[in-house]
Write a protein that binds this DNA or RNA. Structure first.
Lengths: 160, 160
DNA sequence: GTGCTGTTGTTGATGTGTCATCTATCAAAG
DNA sequence: CTTTGATAGATGACACATCAACAACAGCAC
């Protein structure tokens, strides 16, 4: 077997990209999260759940379907829903057709929360990211997202 | 005063970039974090601290300087160092010149940990990000990082 | 019916990040 | 020397994510 050969360290250009990814990009997320919390009292996780439910039919969704749509684990979603339910912005309901299943419903408070939060959140995203970059840069970000979507979304055969 | 005018929602192109940022980019971090944990038993946070200390003079650094360099809050770093100290990979030491201050030092175990982990980690970063993108795309990522660095690094006067 | 297997959703333990708060120290002004 | 304000760092409470169980039910075999 080959002993660990000298690894291919990152070139300077690659290091710059990785540094940006690792040190700079999180600052944007933190800034947006802080705004969201201060403006609307919501976490990013709250907002994600609320916005998906907000555009769901009847403001309700099967829990497992919600988890799958968001690419969240059932556990993560369950914990999150417990916290949100305690704050009265969502409600769990048993579903008749399947004794195991349950649905989440947006309460009136929840609808109000997402309605109020959305414009402020968009503004924050613009302030900290979208309006800061050029259309070309945004285009490349989207492009990178596409590459990753294929890498992760598509089923793979072997180890990579 | 102006009532909240209709917010500037994101264009389709902007949405694509934001979707990539929000839904796809974290997948890369998760994949790399999983690799790192399986290969070396370290978290990303562990690795970040270790790698900075590893290239620091004398494998030691003033805690506040480390926090600033990494763009971490003192609190976050303090908690992280407590956990790492309990596992014996770093050690805290009081500094003579300032009664308040403290330094972190890499233990021998810590040096071994980062030395062993580095090649595997670089390979993982290549596999999941660097080698997946074109040089042009990497260039733009670095460029975006520069924009953000100026936005967040530079002291600001007013609200933005 | 009884048993087996997969699915749904919850829970508890643990590691992590944030915020507010606290102590100790420094530095400068009086 | 004392007060005053800033700084270094630690800490406790809480929100969040992951993992490994776990209970309850569905669906199918027999």
């Amino acid at each position: 077997m080959t002993p660990a050969s000298e690894p291919r360290w990152l070139t300077e250009a690659e290091q710059a990209a990785w540094f940006a990814w690792r040190r700079m990009f999180p600052l944007v997320d933190a800034a947006i999260a802080r705004d969201l919390n201060q403006d609307s009292g919501l976490s990013e996780a709250d907002y994600d759940v609320l916005s998906v439910l907000g555009s769901a039919d009847g403001h309700r969704m099967r829990i497992s379907a919600l988890a799958e749509l968001m690419h969240w684990s059932r556990s993560r979603l369950s914990h999150q829903l417990t916290r949100m339910e305690q704050r009265g912005i969502v409600r769990r309901e048993d579903v008749a057709t399947d004794g195991r299943g349950a649905e989440v419903v947006l309460t009136d408070t929840g609808v109000a929360a997402i309605t109020d939060a959305a414009p402020l959140h968009v503004a924050s995203v613009r302030r900290h990211l979208v309006d800061v970059l050029t259309p070309q840069q945004l285009q490349v970000l989207a492009e990178v997202g596409e590459v990753l979507r294929h890498r992760f979304g598509a089923p793979r055969k072997g180890r990579d």
